[in-house]
Write a protein that binds this DNA or RNA. Structure first.
Length: 203
DNA sequence: AACGACTACAACCGCTCTGCC
DNA sequence: GGGCAGAGCGGTTGTAGTCGT
């Protein structure tokens, strides 16, 4: 995609007055990266002004988060990653940032795009051919999502010292804590799959 | 070669959430 | 508690590239 990006540089830009819009140029990327290096990735309005980019803070944030940030993986979503996305989407719905949080180096925007252009069609096709990937009923899937909502509520509650998590069979904070993981540490996947299987095929 | 349809993805928009005063 | 600004999220749009005719 980098090739495509280079080609498109400047093609949309300067069409509208006031703020720059459209594709980012290499020069803009460089300026933005420089300012973020100095000030950190916070206060995007200030960053936009300081960099002299004539872009809104939101636009700068998006560019940084999705393309300029270190350790970003681009393209080539592996089968393993695809499978994870499918499973997580089944569990979480369109909560792309949460899904992206479980895929090191991937961004919510990339996953969202990948879903819309690849996986949603794939699922449609599978449904049309009568095949359910996991054999989960709609009701069971609803249960899974509700369960996750409970997880989030309980997670807030635990900060108040309450021990109300008896419903959950795994440690919620560990489940959502990505801070100490190496790239594509899949231990949590096993935990998740156990939960998934348990809900879809209760014994 | 030319053209239109389709695809993929970068970027924008509007809304919500969060923190500060 | 209310208002405001900044940050973050998900949905949608715009456009370049690709494919089929």
């Amino acid at each position: 995609m980098a090739e495509k990006e280079v080609k498109s540089i400047g093609s949309v830009k300067d069409v509208r007055k006031e703020m720059n819009r459209g594709a980012w140029t290499a020069e803009e990327d460089r300026k933005l990266a420089e300012v973020i290096e100095v000030h950190g990735a916070k206060r995007w309005k200030m960053i936009a002004t300081t960099a002299g980019l004539n872009r809104c803070g939101k636009s700068c944030r998006l560019r940084w988060m999705n393309y300029l940030r270190p350790n970003i993986k681009r393209g080539n979503i592996s089968d393993q990653e695809e499978d994870l996305i499918l499973r997580l989407h089944k569990l979480l719905g369109n909560r792309w940032s949460l899904i992206a949080g479980r895929l090191p180096g991937r961004t919510d925007n990339e996953i969202k795009n990948y879903w819309n252009s690849h996986l949603s069609k794939k699922i449609k096709q599978e449904k049309q051919s009568g095949g359910s990937t996991r054999g989960c009923s709609k009701l069971q899937r609803t249960r899974v999502v509700e369960e996750v909502n409970v997880v989030e509520v309980k997670r807030e509650d635990t900060s108040n010292g309450g021990d109300q998590c008896s419903k959950m069979s795994f440690n919620v904070d560990e489940f959502f804590d990505f801070s100490e993981e190496g790239p594509l540490n899949l231990e949590w996947v096993s935990q998740f799959l156990e939960l998934d299987e348990g809900l879809c095929h209760p014994s």
